[in-house]
Design a protein around this nucleic acid. Structure first.
Lengths: 199, 199
DNA sequence: TGAAATATGTCAACATTACTGACGTAAAGG
DNA sequence: CCTTTACGTCAGTAATGTTGACATATTTCA
Protein backbone atom coordinates (compact mmCIF):
# COMPACT_ATOMS: atom_id res chain seq x y z
CA UNK A 1 0.00 0.00 0.00
CA UNK A 2 0.99 3.60 -0.48
CA UNK A 3 3.27 2.28 -3.12
CA UNK A 4 3.95 3.72 -6.51
CA UNK A 5 5.17 1.70 -9.44
CA UNK A 6 8.93 1.31 -9.34
CA UNK A 7 10.60 4.21 -10.97
CA UNK A 8 13.90 5.62 -10.10
CA UNK A 9 13.29 9.28 -10.84
CA UNK A 10 16.95 9.49 -11.52
CA UNK A 11 17.26 13.22 -11.57
CA UNK A 12 15.61 13.64 -8.22
CA UNK A 13 17.39 10.76 -6.56
CA UNK A 14 20.79 11.78 -7.74
CA UNK A 15 20.46 15.38 -6.72
CA UNK A 16 20.97 14.49 -3.11
CA UNK A 17 22.89 17.61 -2.38
CA UNK A 18 20.40 20.43 -1.97
CA UNK A 19 20.91 23.52 -4.03
CA UNK A 20 19.53 26.58 -2.28
CA UNK A 21 21.35 29.13 -4.31
CA UNK A 22 18.41 31.47 -4.59
CA UNK A 23 19.50 34.76 -3.08
CA UNK A 24 16.28 36.69 -3.58
CA UNK A 25 14.84 38.42 -0.56
CA UNK A 26 12.13 35.95 0.38
CA UNK A 27 13.83 32.76 -0.70
CA UNK A 28 13.44 29.88 1.76
CA UNK A 29 16.47 29.72 4.00
CA UNK A 30 16.75 25.97 4.19
CA UNK A 31 20.29 26.06 5.48
CA UNK A 32 19.39 28.05 8.58
CA UNK A 33 16.18 26.12 9.18
CA UNK A 34 18.06 22.86 9.23
CA UNK A 35 21.04 24.16 11.16
CA UNK A 36 18.73 25.38 13.91
CA UNK A 37 17.34 21.87 14.16
CA UNK A 38 20.71 20.13 14.29
CA UNK A 39 22.40 22.68 16.54
CA UNK A 40 19.65 22.61 19.13
CA UNK A 41 19.39 18.84 19.03
CA UNK A 42 23.06 18.40 19.88
CA UNK A 43 23.04 21.26 22.36
CA UNK A 44 20.31 19.81 24.53
CA UNK A 45 21.67 16.27 24.31
CA UNK A 46 24.67 17.28 26.43
CA UNK A 47 22.80 17.02 29.69
CA UNK A 48 20.69 13.96 29.00
CA UNK A 49 22.89 11.22 30.38
CA UNK A 50 23.54 12.99 33.65
CA UNK A 51 19.87 13.80 34.09
CA UNK A 52 18.71 10.30 33.21
CA UNK A 53 21.06 8.79 35.78
CA UNK A 54 19.19 10.75 38.43
CA UNK A 55 15.76 9.86 37.08
CA UNK A 56 15.17 13.34 35.72
CA UNK A 57 14.32 14.61 32.27
CA UNK A 58 14.67 17.86 30.44
CA UNK A 59 11.61 19.34 32.05
CA UNK A 60 13.21 18.88 35.46
CA UNK A 61 16.38 20.47 34.18
CA UNK A 62 14.63 23.55 32.88
CA UNK A 63 12.90 24.08 36.22
CA UNK A 64 16.08 23.54 38.20
CA UNK A 65 18.03 25.81 35.88
CA UNK A 66 15.75 28.80 36.23
CA UNK A 67 15.28 28.26 39.96
CA UNK A 68 19.05 28.24 40.35
CA UNK A 69 19.51 31.27 38.19
CA UNK A 70 16.78 33.32 39.80
CA UNK A 71 16.51 32.09 43.37
CA UNK A 72 13.31 33.14 45.04
CA UNK A 73 11.15 33.27 41.94
CA UNK A 74 7.52 32.41 42.30
CA UNK A 75 5.40 29.77 40.59
CA UNK A 76 3.78 32.40 38.39
CA UNK A 77 7.13 33.80 37.29
CA UNK A 78 8.37 30.31 36.47
CA UNK A 79 5.23 29.57 34.47
CA UNK A 80 5.75 32.77 32.50
CA UNK A 81 9.31 31.79 31.66
CA UNK A 82 8.62 28.19 30.70
CA UNK A 83 5.29 28.85 28.98
CA UNK A 84 3.74 25.62 30.16
CA UNK A 85 0.64 24.93 32.23
CA UNK A 86 0.77 24.83 35.99
CA UNK A 87 -0.23 21.16 35.86
CA UNK A 88 2.82 20.32 33.77
CA UNK A 89 5.06 22.37 36.00
CA UNK A 90 3.66 20.89 39.17
CA UNK A 91 4.43 17.33 38.19
CA UNK A 92 8.14 17.91 37.72
CA UNK A 93 8.42 20.51 40.46
CA UNK A 94 6.91 18.11 42.98
CA UNK A 95 9.58 15.57 42.18
CA UNK A 96 12.33 18.13 42.55
CA UNK A 97 10.88 19.18 45.91
CA UNK A 98 10.46 15.59 47.12
CA UNK A 99 14.05 14.77 46.27
CA UNK A 100 15.30 17.99 47.84
CA UNK A 101 16.76 19.58 44.76
CA UNK A 102 14.48 22.56 45.21
CA UNK A 103 13.09 24.20 48.33
CA UNK A 104 10.01 26.36 48.61
CA UNK A 105 8.83 28.85 51.16
CA UNK A 106 5.77 31.04 51.48
CA UNK A 107 6.22 34.69 50.73
CA UNK A 108 6.17 37.10 53.65
CA UNK A 109 4.48 39.93 51.83
CA UNK A 110 2.01 37.68 50.02
CA UNK A 111 1.59 34.38 51.78
CA UNK A 112 -0.16 32.84 48.78
CA UNK A 113 3.04 32.86 46.78
CA UNK A 114 5.75 30.24 47.00
CA UNK A 115 9.33 31.31 46.48
CA UNK A 116 11.57 28.63 45.02
CA UNK A 117 15.22 28.12 45.91
CA UNK A 118 17.74 25.52 44.88
CA UNK A 119 19.07 23.30 47.64
CA UNK A 120 22.77 22.68 47.94
CA UNK A 121 22.61 19.56 45.76
CA UNK A 122 20.21 21.33 43.40
CA UNK A 123 22.68 24.14 42.94
CA UNK A 124 25.46 21.59 42.36
CA UNK A 125 23.49 19.69 39.72
CA UNK A 126 22.49 22.86 37.91
CA UNK A 127 26.10 24.01 37.92
CA UNK A 128 27.33 20.67 36.57
CA UNK A 129 24.95 20.78 33.64
CA UNK A 130 25.63 24.45 32.94
CA UNK A 131 29.33 23.62 32.87
CA UNK A 132 28.78 20.91 30.28
CA UNK A 133 26.79 23.21 28.03
CA UNK A 134 29.21 26.07 28.56
CA UNK A 135 32.03 23.82 27.46
CA UNK A 136 30.28 23.35 24.14
CA UNK A 137 30.00 27.12 23.74
CA UNK A 138 33.64 27.56 24.72
CA UNK A 139 34.69 25.08 22.04
CA UNK A 140 32.46 26.78 19.49
CA UNK A 141 33.89 30.23 20.07
CA UNK A 142 37.44 28.96 20.27
CA UNK A 143 36.96 27.72 16.72
CA UNK A 144 35.46 30.98 15.45
CA UNK A 145 36.49 34.60 15.33
CA UNK A 146 36.50 36.86 18.35
CA UNK A 147 33.33 38.66 17.40
CA UNK A 148 31.44 35.40 17.13
CA UNK A 149 30.17 35.40 20.70
CA UNK A 150 28.45 38.81 20.71
CA UNK A 151 27.19 38.08 17.21
CA UNK A 152 25.68 34.79 18.34
CA UNK A 153 24.00 36.51 21.28
CA UNK A 154 22.57 39.19 19.02
CA UNK A 155 21.36 36.56 16.55
CA UNK A 156 19.67 34.40 19.17
CA UNK A 157 18.03 37.35 20.85
CA UNK A 158 16.73 38.59 17.52
CA UNK A 159 15.21 35.15 16.93
CA UNK A 160 12.96 35.60 19.96
CA UNK A 161 9.47 36.97 19.38
CA UNK A 162 9.90 40.73 19.46
CA UNK A 163 7.25 41.26 22.12
CA UNK A 164 9.40 39.19 24.47
CA UNK A 165 12.86 40.38 23.53
CA UNK A 166 13.15 43.06 26.17
CA UNK A 167 12.08 40.68 28.90
CA UNK A 168 14.43 37.95 27.71
CA UNK A 169 17.31 40.38 27.39
CA UNK A 170 16.80 41.53 30.96
CA UNK A 171 16.44 37.97 32.22
CA UNK A 172 19.57 36.69 30.58
CA UNK A 173 21.57 39.80 31.39
CA UNK A 174 22.23 40.44 27.72
CA UNK A 175 22.56 43.95 26.35
CA UNK A 176 20.73 44.18 23.01
CA UNK A 177 23.07 46.74 21.52
CA UNK A 178 23.42 45.29 18.06
CA UNK A 179 19.75 45.43 17.25
CA UNK A 180 19.14 48.32 14.94
CA UNK A 181 15.44 48.29 14.31
CA UNK A 182 12.36 46.48 15.41
CA UNK A 183 10.51 44.35 12.91
CA UNK A 184 7.46 42.18 13.49
CA UNK A 185 7.95 38.44 13.75
CA UNK A 186 6.35 35.52 12.04
CA UNK A 187 2.67 35.01 11.60
CA UNK A 188 1.60 33.99 15.05
CA UNK A 189 3.68 36.34 17.13
CA UNK A 190 0.96 38.04 19.09
CA UNK A 191 -1.68 35.37 19.10
CA UNK A 192 -0.13 33.19 21.72
CA UNK A 193 3.08 31.99 23.18
CA UNK A 194 1.87 28.46 23.65
CA UNK A 195 5.00 26.64 22.75
CA UNK A 196 3.73 23.06 22.91
CA UNK A 197 7.31 22.25 23.58
CA UNK A 198 7.25 18.46 23.77
CA UNK A 199 10.91 18.31 24.58
CA UNK B 1 4.69 19.59 52.67
CA UNK B 2 7.96 20.53 51.06
CA UNK B 3 7.52 23.80 52.79
CA UNK B 4 10.09 25.82 54.64
CA UNK B 5 9.30 28.30 57.36
CA UNK B 6 8.33 31.65 55.89
CA UNK B 7 11.37 33.70 55.25
CA UNK B 8 11.85 36.18 52.54
CA UNK B 9 15.55 35.74 51.84
CA UNK B 10 15.50 39.32 50.76
CA UNK B 11 18.86 39.40 49.08
CA UNK B 12 18.10 36.44 46.86
CA UNK B 13 14.58 37.52 46.02
CA UNK B 14 15.53 41.03 45.13
CA UNK B 15 18.44 40.04 42.94
CA UNK B 16 16.08 38.99 40.18
CA UNK B 17 18.38 40.21 37.51
CA UNK B 18 21.10 37.63 37.05
CA UNK B 19 24.68 38.77 37.20
CA UNK B 20 26.90 36.58 35.08
CA UNK B 21 29.80 38.95 34.81
CA UNK B 22 32.43 36.28 35.24
CA UNK B 23 34.62 36.43 32.18
CA UNK B 24 37.01 33.60 33.08
CA UNK B 25 37.52 30.90 30.50
CA UNK B 26 35.26 28.21 31.92
CA UNK B 27 32.60 30.42 33.45
CA UNK B 28 29.05 29.17 32.88
CA UNK B 29 27.58 30.92 29.88
CA UNK B 30 24.09 31.33 31.23
CA UNK B 31 23.15 33.95 28.67
CA UNK B 32 23.79 31.68 25.71
CA UNK B 33 22.27 28.65 27.40
CA UNK B 34 19.03 30.52 27.97
CA UNK B 35 19.00 32.30 24.62
CA UNK B 36 19.28 28.94 22.84
CA UNK B 37 16.21 27.82 24.72
CA UNK B 38 14.13 30.89 23.99
CA UNK B 39 15.26 31.28 20.39
CA UNK B 40 14.50 27.69 19.49
CA UNK B 41 11.19 27.75 21.32
CA UNK B 42 9.94 30.71 19.29
CA UNK B 43 11.49 29.44 16.08
CA UNK B 44 9.66 26.12 16.10
CA UNK B 45 6.39 27.67 17.24
CA UNK B 46 6.00 29.36 13.87
CA UNK B 47 4.71 26.27 12.16
CA UNK B 48 2.57 24.86 14.93
CA UNK B 49 -0.77 26.43 14.12
CA UNK B 50 -0.65 25.52 10.46
CA UNK B 51 0.39 21.97 11.23
CA UNK B 52 -2.21 21.51 13.95
CA UNK B 53 -4.98 22.63 11.59
CA UNK B 54 -4.05 19.69 9.37
CA UNK B 55 -3.81 17.20 12.20
CA UNK B 56 -0.04 17.05 12.02
CA UNK B 57 2.66 17.64 14.60
CA UNK B 58 6.29 18.56 14.51
CA UNK B 59 7.36 15.03 13.79
CA UNK B 60 5.32 15.08 10.60
CA UNK B 61 6.86 18.39 9.67
CA UNK B 62 10.40 17.16 10.08
CA UNK B 63 9.73 14.17 7.87
CA UNK B 64 7.97 16.22 5.22
CA UNK B 65 10.70 18.84 5.31
CA UNK B 66 13.57 16.46 4.66
CA UNK B 67 11.59 14.49 2.09
CA UNK B 68 10.89 17.73 0.26
CA UNK B 69 14.45 18.87 0.47
CA UNK B 70 15.99 15.60 -0.58
CA UNK B 71 13.43 13.92 -2.81
CA UNK B 72 14.11 10.25 -3.31
CA UNK B 73 15.84 9.61 0.00
CA UNK B 74 15.40 6.21 1.54
CA UNK B 75 14.04 5.18 4.92
CA UNK B 76 17.54 4.48 6.17
CA UNK B 77 18.78 7.89 5.13
CA UNK B 78 15.84 9.58 6.79
CA UNK B 79 16.44 7.63 9.99
CA UNK B 80 20.07 8.74 9.98
CA UNK B 81 19.06 12.37 9.63
CA UNK B 82 16.32 12.37 12.24
CA UNK B 83 18.09 10.06 14.67
CA UNK B 84 14.90 8.33 15.74
CA UNK B 85 13.84 4.70 15.65
CA UNK B 86 12.14 3.21 12.64
CA UNK B 87 9.04 2.59 14.73
CA UNK B 88 8.77 6.29 15.56
CA UNK B 89 9.36 7.26 11.97
CA UNK B 90 6.88 4.74 10.64
CA UNK B 91 3.99 6.09 12.66
CA UNK B 92 4.21 9.60 11.25
CA UNK B 93 5.36 8.52 7.82
CA UNK B 94 2.35 6.22 7.45
CA UNK B 95 0.03 9.13 8.14
CA UNK B 96 1.81 11.30 5.59
CA UNK B 97 1.54 8.51 3.03
CA UNK B 98 -2.13 7.82 3.79
CA UNK B 99 -3.00 11.48 3.38
CA UNK B 100 -0.94 11.77 0.20
CA UNK B 101 1.57 14.29 1.42
CA UNK B 102 4.39 11.87 0.67
CA UNK B 103 4.73 9.18 -1.98
CA UNK B 104 6.97 6.16 -1.90
CA UNK B 105 8.32 3.89 -4.58
CA UNK B 106 10.56 0.86 -4.56
CA UNK B 107 14.09 1.34 -5.71
CA UNK B 108 15.01 -0.08 -9.10
CA UNK B 109 18.54 -1.02 -8.21
CA UNK B 110 17.61 -2.35 -4.77
CA UNK B 111 13.97 -3.24 -4.54
CA UNK B 112 14.09 -3.48 -0.74
CA UNK B 113 14.56 0.26 -0.45
CA UNK B 114 11.74 2.77 -0.58
CA UNK B 115 12.42 6.16 -2.06
CA UNK B 116 10.31 8.97 -0.64
CA UNK B 117 8.98 11.92 -2.60
CA UNK B 118 6.72 14.79 -1.66
CA UNK B 119 3.39 14.94 -3.46
CA UNK B 120 2.21 18.18 -4.93
CA UNK B 121 0.32 19.15 -1.78
CA UNK B 122 3.22 17.88 0.33
CA UNK B 123 5.59 20.16 -1.52
CA UNK B 124 3.17 23.05 -1.07
CA UNK B 125 2.83 22.50 2.67
CA UNK B 126 6.57 22.19 3.15
CA UNK B 127 7.09 25.37 1.17
CA UNK B 128 4.49 27.26 3.21
CA UNK B 129 6.14 26.34 6.47
CA UNK B 130 9.63 27.04 5.16
CA UNK B 131 8.40 30.47 4.05
CA UNK B 132 7.12 31.24 7.54
CA UNK B 133 10.39 30.27 9.16
CA UNK B 134 12.40 32.04 6.49
CA UNK B 135 10.46 35.20 7.19
CA UNK B 136 11.65 35.08 10.77
CA UNK B 137 15.24 34.79 9.57
CA UNK B 138 14.75 37.61 7.10
CA UNK B 139 13.48 39.86 9.88
CA UNK B 140 16.36 38.84 12.11
CA UNK B 141 19.04 39.67 9.59
CA UNK B 142 17.34 42.87 8.51
CA UNK B 143 17.78 44.03 12.09
CA UNK B 144 21.42 43.02 12.31
CA UNK B 145 24.61 43.78 10.43
CA UNK B 146 25.39 42.35 7.03
CA UNK B 147 27.82 39.79 8.32
CA UNK B 148 25.23 38.40 10.72
CA UNK B 149 23.94 35.73 8.37
CA UNK B 150 27.24 33.96 7.61
CA UNK B 151 28.20 34.38 11.26
CA UNK B 152 24.98 32.72 12.38
CA UNK B 153 25.54 29.85 9.98
CA UNK B 154 29.08 29.36 11.23
CA UNK B 155 27.91 29.50 14.83
CA UNK B 156 25.10 26.97 14.37
CA UNK B 157 27.29 24.60 12.42
CA UNK B 158 29.95 24.78 15.12
CA UNK B 159 27.30 23.88 17.68
CA UNK B 160 26.76 20.53 15.97
CA UNK B 161 28.71 17.55 17.28
CA UNK B 162 32.01 17.68 15.43
CA UNK B 163 31.75 14.11 14.15
CA UNK B 164 28.62 15.16 12.26
CA UNK B 165 29.61 18.62 11.09
CA UNK B 166 30.89 17.57 7.69
CA UNK B 167 27.77 15.58 6.95
CA UNK B 168 25.49 18.38 8.13
CA UNK B 169 27.42 20.96 6.16
CA UNK B 170 27.04 18.89 3.01
CA UNK B 171 23.37 18.23 3.66
CA UNK B 172 22.47 21.85 4.26
CA UNK B 173 24.66 23.12 1.46
CA UNK B 174 26.68 25.24 3.85
CA UNK B 175 30.36 25.88 3.30
CA UNK B 176 32.20 25.66 6.63
CA UNK B 177 34.82 28.26 5.78
CA UNK B 178 34.88 30.16 9.03
CA UNK B 179 35.82 27.21 11.16
CA UNK B 180 39.46 27.47 12.04
CA UNK B 181 40.17 24.40 14.11
CA UNK B 182 38.51 21.25 15.25
CA UNK B 183 37.87 20.78 18.92
CA UNK B 184 36.06 17.93 20.67
CA UNK B 185 32.52 18.50 21.83
CA UNK B 186 30.81 18.03 25.12
CA UNK B 187 31.05 14.94 27.23
CA UNK B 188 28.86 12.52 25.37
CA UNK B 189 29.82 13.32 21.83
CA UNK B 190 30.90 9.91 20.67
CA UNK B 191 28.85 7.68 22.90
CA UNK B 192 25.63 8.09 21.00
CA UNK B 193 23.56 10.42 18.98
CA UNK B 194 20.33 9.36 20.56
CA UNK B 195 18.63 12.68 20.75
CA UNK B 196 15.51 11.71 22.66
CA UNK B 197 14.06 14.72 21.02
CA UNK B 198 10.58 14.87 22.52
CA UNK B 199 9.60 17.85 20.45
C1' DT C 1 -17.03 43.47 56.21
C1' DG C 2 -18.16 40.78 52.42
C1' DA C 3 -17.45 39.74 47.56
C1' DA C 4 -14.27 39.16 43.98
C1' DA C 5 -9.86 38.39 42.28
C1' DT C 6 -5.42 36.08 42.75
C1' DA C 7 -1.90 32.30 43.61
C1' DT C 8 -1.53 27.91 43.97
C1' DG C 9 -2.66 22.73 44.27
C1' DT C 10 -4.92 18.68 42.42
C1' DC C 11 -7.65 15.14 39.92
C1' DA C 12 -8.88 13.07 35.59
C1' DA C 13 -8.53 12.17 30.81
C1' DC C 14 -6.02 12.47 26.76
C1' DA C 15 -2.41 13.53 22.71
C1' DT C 16 2.16 13.49 20.87
C1' DT C 17 6.50 11.81 20.49
C1' DA C 18 9.73 9.01 21.76
C1' DC C 19 11.70 4.36 23.52
C1' DT C 20 12.67 -1.07 23.83
C1' DG C 21 11.99 -5.71 22.41
C1' DA C 22 10.42 -9.05 19.41
C1' DC C 23 9.12 -10.94 15.20
C1' DG C 24 8.07 -11.14 10.05
C1' DT C 25 9.06 -10.50 4.99
C1' DA C 26 11.25 -9.69 0.91
C1' DA C 27 15.38 -8.93 -1.56
C1' DA C 28 20.39 -8.83 -2.07
C1' DG C 29 24.79 -11.05 -1.90
C1' DG C 30 28.48 -14.11 -0.84
C1' DC D 1 21.64 -21.89 0.19
C1' DC D 2 22.39 -19.16 3.91
C1' DT D 3 23.21 -14.77 5.88
C1' DT D 4 22.67 -10.07 5.84
C1' DT D 5 20.13 -6.03 4.79
C1' DA D 6 16.01 -2.92 4.42
C1' DC D 7 11.93 -2.38 5.91
C1' DG D 8 7.26 -3.24 8.39
C1' DT D 9 4.66 -4.16 12.50
C1' DC D 10 2.82 -5.34 17.12
C1' DA D 11 2.95 -4.60 22.04
C1' DG D 12 4.14 -2.17 26.01
C1' DT D 13 6.06 1.88 28.33
C1' DA D 14 7.78 6.64 29.45
C1' DA D 15 8.18 11.74 29.27
C1' DT D 16 6.10 15.86 28.35
C1' DG D 17 2.58 18.40 27.19
C1' DT D 18 -2.66 19.74 26.89
C1' DT D 19 -7.80 20.93 28.59
C1' DG D 20 -11.28 21.18 32.01
C1' DA D 21 -12.95 21.29 36.49
C1' DC D 22 -12.67 22.07 41.20
C1' DA D 23 -10.52 23.25 45.99
C1' DT D 24 -8.11 26.36 49.27
C1' DA D 25 -5.98 30.04 51.14
C1' DT D 26 -5.03 34.85 50.89
C1' DT D 27 -5.28 39.46 49.23
C1' DT D 28 -7.75 43.33 47.35
C1' DC D 29 -11.39 46.23 46.63
C1' DA D 30 -15.96 48.33 46.82
Amino acid sequence: MNEISPRENTAAVLSRRPCSLDLSADAPQYDLIELMFFAYRDFVSDADHLLASLGFGRAHHRVLHFVSRRPGLTIAELLDILKITKQSLNRVLKELLDQRYVEACRGMRDRRQRHLFPSEQGRALAADIAAMQSKRFANVFAALSESARPQAIAFLLAMVNSNEQAKIAAMTGVVPTLTRRSIPDGIHQRESNSAKFHG
